[in-house]
């Protein structure tokens, strides 16, 4: 599914952001990515959606080898992923449903297939009633729901979430987390970078902890990774 093998990442003019990182996220798995600010969580996620390439080592994502794949293959990979961020990344001049539809239009979906899909995911995230609202008319939690709906509309096999609750209060955080659990229950893997240790502690899911670019703790170390070390 997603497999890092001895991955190193150096930014230009920077120290190593990742050092010898290996892990394997299985189909349908839910995992947290934790660690202090600057530990390398966002870097891990950016290697998965091929925004960056590893300096050394191999990143495999569902049959794609992001180290060696040509640039024009990247869109194909991204259509199979869902990605959400702390800052939602919605288009302010479009309604909730238009923001979701945008992901389909931008990938050249046939226009008659768009409407039903948008309704389905907005219902799934509990925002069917706010389809016509603009982002500024929505709460932070609701905006993140729109972003999650947009991430889900292409039926991804994994949802990557970079601090999705970072801008939300406790109540909204619980709501979004519950939604991510539901998404996971319906078969989509979830990889969630977070600072919220309460969430991690009180959940039964795997957690991978980074420190200065190295994995210092992984609650599930499988045989492959042992072999890689």
């Amino acid at each position: 599914m997603i497999k890092f093998t001895r991955v190193f990442k150096a930014y230009p003019k920077g120290d190593l952001a990742l050092k010898d990182v290996s892990f394997h996220l299985r189909k349908g798995e839910f995992a947290f990515l934790t660690g202090h600010s600057g530990a390398g969580k966002s870097t891990v996620l950016s290697l998965i959606h091929a925004e960056r390439k590893p300096t050394e080592g191999e990143v495999r994502v569902s049959g794609f080898n992001t180290t060696s794949m040509p640039r024009r293959e990247i869109p194909k990979l991204r259509r199979r992923l869902g990605i959400v961020f702390q800052d939602f990344r919605l288009l302010e001049d479009r309604t909730a449903e238009e923001n979701v539809a945008f992901a389909l239009e931008a990938t050249g979906a046939r226009s008659n297939t768009i409407g039903p899909k948008v309704v389905r995911v907005l219902t799934q995230v509990g925002l069917a009633g706010k389809a016509k609202a603009f982002p500024k008319e929505l709460s932070g939690g609701e905006r993140q729901r729109v972003a999650i709906a947009r991430a889900l509309v292409n039926d991804p096999f994994v949802l990557l979430a970079d601090e999705p609750t970072g801008n939300l209060d406790q109540r909204a955080t619980r709501g979004i987390f519950k939604l991510l659990e539901d998404v996971n229950a319906s078969g989509t893997a979830v990889l969630m970078a977070t600072h919220n240790l309460d969430l991690v502690k009180n959940s039964p899911y795997r957690s991978i902890e980074l420190e200065h670019g190295e994995i210092v703790f992984d609650s599930v170390v499988d045989a492959d990774q042992e072999a890689a070390r």
Partner: peptide, 16 residues
């Protein structure tokens, strides 16, 4: 830039 970034994120091709 924002729109273009989002288009890339959701998998729009460069030519699109």
């Amino acid at each position: 830039a924002r729109e273009i970034g989002i288009m890339r994120l959701v998998g729009a091709t460069d030519s699109f």
